[in-house]
Design a protein around this nucleic acid. Structure first.
Ligand SMILES: [Zn+2]
Ligand SMILES: [Zn+2]
Ligand SMILES: [Zn+2]
Ligand SMILES: [Zn+2]
Lengths: 414, 414
DNA sequence: TCAAAGAACATGTTCTGAG
DNA sequence: ACTCAGAACATGTTCTTTG
């Protein structure tokens, strides 16, 4: 309650007295302080209990659009979406060993038959019909694909950093939609530009909040943004577009068509349909892209001569590798090997397609260059963004670099 | 949760659509939104349930000093003090008709004997051994002394306005105490002055947050402060002194003795012991004093010539009368006629004694004059205090003035 | 010493029913 | 329509146990 984000230092530290302080991080489901893995995912006490009590319920349905935001403060709003998110975060009912006597269902049943209890003791503790499969435990504890506690922490930090900064984009999108009513202003690039600017900001703040970014010099940061920000932008745009069903709203559809042309919107719609459905994977992909050596450097003005700043920088490869590994392990854990391979290749394909799309957008409208310049300006301004932010750094910090091959989504401008 | 104070308009109003909106106010216990009277006092749902479940508990004891603050946010901190405050606010177990099956105690017992339940149905609903006395209901519903819903609301608003502004005084007092450690600074008037300044501010903000004060002209406000603020100050000082047991801390005792002299401290201690124990009464007394025609005008500089501003102003008498009536009814309700008379005369005596004390303090130290001047300056400054405050006005607004005799705690400076 | 499941305990919110 | 007690339901927190 009182601690909030302040204590979510990713790994075990020592406090002033030298006493060992238990490692703390944030609940994958709601963002509350979390310390251990419950039922297969890093989550808080409340979400743990919630999951145990509600998992046996008959299908609950969301009263809204099935996309309710779940945070520490909103988690009471929609049981269905909270439970869904629990599953999405990797919580697994197979870890539940007994049918909880206080399960909401159990409670109801117990009260209904309170007149004639002959089997008074019979209902004490029923062993779950599906005892925890050792296989699952193996995956967590022994399998090479298991995510370490540190990696879970980092994963949860990535997700929540993204969610936090994405919020403004979603709000901006919905609000702009509502404001759109006067018809005469309908076909006007301003709306599109306002949105795009927000997406650029979201992407930038997301990257900038990671420790791996902050330890770079200012020049390195700029170089990184120039290389990769466009790629991040298009992913943010697509996620928001999909989550808010933008292309299904005629108003947005028409506005975008006016701004981008019908060809590009058709392409956008096509790619959007194929977009990976697990947002967690996309968020991880984003951070991987952010530390790519060159996701899409599109500006010929100051291209290659700064390459020495980045190419060959171990820090960069190190950061990226950690995140790629987390992405991979998480997918293995969630989907198993076969499905992981399928999804991963899909993800790579989508990334390349989207980058190709953003290249076209960039070329056809000089505003994108303006947005990028603005981002650079923001990054180099004396007041460092996020300096006083309540979100702490969440990067990999001092983890030893890992020996797998670094990935690069290169896309040089020809 | 989201509404907070914004909706605590004291009486039934209509919203924009013209639909009748249920009257809302704040829980006497914790300040949460409250709508109806539960178990004899205006309180919120949570406090209602809390009271029912905990009232049958064996004496719980506070782990701190028995004076824990109870607000919407802190109410979980101390069960003992919350329950105590429930009683202090007038909640009465006689309104509870059954022993709640979910009483914390009952729950424990039920579980303990779960092996051999022969009287399975016997424990369903036990009628309370003390059914609600009609007498109490009469008091509430028929007796002339009953507080109307409007008056309950006003009462709760007074209490919470005071609690809110008193907080800074208490914090300041405790903090200063902790800071006091270096011995060389121990005997220094600065500490006393800092405190006094805080008490003056508390008193002023308290008054200034009432609607009855705000509808006055600036000149009238100043005049009112000059007349009555010293009296409010000494009451605030005494309440904090008592609640924090200041005179029992040698550090404070010595500091005050240094600043005020041992004679005045002895007098202070004597009066403090006699101070009314029910803080609610004191808070009501404060607001009565605030609208007194002259509680203690001590400054000869600009004395009597402004009297026409106030004497004979119906608004003033009206405000005071409403609060006096609430005070009287509340006491009748809480303590019965005999005790009310006793307490009320005690309260009057204490008020006169304290005013006499503050007169002496004022005369012996020019800083008091400075504090008063500062308060006036604050009141007349272009930025009205509390203008953007989240606490709405809580005064009597348009209630018709009542025909009882106005009270005046006159104490002219001779 | 620690991770993690469950029980037990404590609270808060919404529905029901009798005036 | 409104007041208010109580039940039922939903959540959150802390203690206990096991490996
Ligand atoms: Zn959670
Ligand atoms: Zn939902
Ligand atoms: Zn309350
Ligand atoms: Zn206490």
């Amino acid at each position: 309650m009182n601690s909030d984000f302040a204590e979510s230092a990713p790994i075990t530290t020592k406090n002033k007295v030298g006493r060992r302080v238990s490692k703390q991080s944030i609940c994958l489901v709601c963002g509350e302080v979390a310390r251990i893995i419950n039922y297969g995912a890093l989550c808080c006490q409340a979400c743990k209990t919630f999951f145990r009590r509600n998992v046996s319920h008959g299908k609950q349905v969301c009263q809204y659009d099935g996309n309710c935001e779940i945070t520490k403060f909103t988690r009471l709003g929609c049981t269905a979406c909270r439970l869904k998110k629990c599953f999405a975060c990797g919580m697994n009912p197979e870890f539940i060993r007994v049918t909880d006597q206080n399960t909401n269902h159990a409670l109801v049943k117990r009260r209904n038959k309170k007149t004639n209890d002959d089997d008074n003791n019979g209902e004490k503790l029923k062993i779950n019909l599906f005892p925890p499969k050792l296989q699952t435990l193996d995956l967590l504890e022994n399998d090479r694909s298991a995510l370490s506690h540190f990696e879970w922490t980092l994963l949860s930090n990535v997700i929540h950093a993204y969610d936090r900064f994405e919020a403004s984009s979603k709000i901006s999108t919905s609000t702009n939609y509502l404001v759109h009513l006067p018809v005469e202003t309908l076909f006007h690039n301003t709306h599109t530009y306002n949105l795009f600017k927000t997406y650029y900001t979201t992407a930038q703040l997301f990257v900038a909040s990671s420790a791996d970014y902050k330890i770079l010099t200012s020049a390195e940061q700029c170089s990184l943004l120039k290389r990769n920000l466009n790629g991040l932008f298009i992913f943010c745009a697509e996620v928001v577009c999909r989550d808010l069903k933008m292309l299904e709203h005629p108003v947005w559809f028409n506005t975008l068509t006016y701004s981008l042309g019908s060809g590009m919107v058709a392409r956008k719609r096509y790619l959007n349909k194929k977009l990976e459905h697990d947002n967690t994977l996309i968020k991880l992909m984003l951070i991987v892209l952010a530390f790519s050596s060159n996701c899409c450097m599109l500006d010929e003005r100051d291209g290659v001569f700064q390459d020495h700043l980045l190419i060959g920088t171990f820090r960069l490869f190190g950061s990226q590798n950690v995140f790629v590994e987390i992405l991979w392990k998480y997918m293995l854990y969630r989907y198993g090997y076969r499905e992981t391979v399928r999804r991963f290749s899909g993800l790579v394909k989508q990334t390349l397609d989207l980058i190709s799309l953003v290249v076209n957008m960039y070329r056809s409208d000089r505003m994108h260059q303006y947005f990028l310049d603005e981002a650079i300006k923001l990054a180099t301004s004396s007041v460092k963004i996020g300096e006083n932010d309540s979100i702490p750094l969440w990067g990999k910090s001092s983890l030893d670099s890992i020996e797998s091959t670094p990935m690069t989504f290169g896309y040089y401008c020809t």
